[in-house]
Design a binder for these strands. Structure first.
Lengths: 154, 154
DNA sequence: ATCAACTAGTTGAACTCTCAACTATCCCCG
DNA sequence: CGGGGATAGTTGAGAGTTCAACTAGTTGAT
């Protein structure tokens, strides 16, 4: 027997669905408009910029983004065409590839980041009370532990 | 001056980002696997099934889904090819088109819905306390009012 | 009545993502 | 050391989305 959602649950689910999509879409479009890249690509640049030597193994990068290898591979191809990332052979594993953030990529990221952070503040942090932000953090962690037990957020 | 995210905010933001994406991706893949349609298309069928005569004007349907007209138009083309939806001319506005759920579309939806609802329960409702669900509803409403003030969720 | 401005909807190209298939390399057990 | 199975990464095709341009019909002010 399926337990259908009651009206209250229905409301909660649809509100969450629409709100989370609206937030992601809004930030994605702002990034696309202001910096010419989708949010997924921005995240790749961020990870690389935080890594030693601004470089990471493709697999590690994919894991840290919860992205499929295929998706990452296509994305890095695109980012390479734009000159923001470059590939290098891995010195210790001949199957491996390193994605490396170029100087130009770093500059593009440095230019994009302030506006993007402003957006995250405007659309998320400034809209909620400190208490609600705490709740949202708890809720998100719980869901993430369930959906992706091996995730890399401490 | 950009106000960067402090470590706490960073954690909250990334947890939310990953959790909401993981949830949507999981449900999308379950739906794709079990019923051969993406979640966006499932939602179209749901809206139509809830509408009088199982039919809606394209614009109203797009608004109720917070979807672009273009996206909906492509989607309805696809759903029409599959025989789940059909287009009709609008009797009162010659520019208008109605999207109508077919009998076959209704049956496909009826078959898909129970599993999908089970998924929503398993991955969302069963993971959170009633208190947390209340909080999530509040938070979502707040964000939605900010991001899309004209949204149609009461 | 007319015409500019607006609304409804579609289209095609470019882009991103998914999925399955594929190559190449590494690991390790017998 | 040899070979089966795992791991790393890429590729191409197909599907969905975006964006801008487009057609067609409607509206309202003059």
């Amino acid at each position: 027997m399926t337990r259908w959602l009651n009206p209250d649950e229905q409301r909660t689910w649809r509100a969450f669905l629409f709100a989370s999509r609206a937030l992601l879409e809004t930030l994605d479009k702002e990034l696309q408009r202001d910096s010419g890249m989708p949010h997924a690509y921005y995240e790749i640049l961020v990870r690389l910029s935080e890594a030693p030597d601004r470089s990471m193994r493709m697999s590690d990068l994919a894991d840290s983004l919860a992205s499929s290898r295929s998706r990452l591979s296509h994305a890095v191809t695109r980012l390479t065409e734009q000159g923001w990332v470059r590939r290098e052979d891995c010195p210790t594993d001949r199957r491996g590839q390193l994605a490396v953030l170029t100087e130009q990529g770093y500059e593009v990221l440095a230019a994009a980041a302030p506006r993007h952070v402003d957006g995250v503040r405007a659309h998320l942090f400034d809209q909620l009370t400190p208490e609600q932000l705490g709740q949202l953090g708890q809720i998100s962690s719980r869901l993430l532990d369930h959906l992706d037990p091996d995730h890399e957020l401490r």
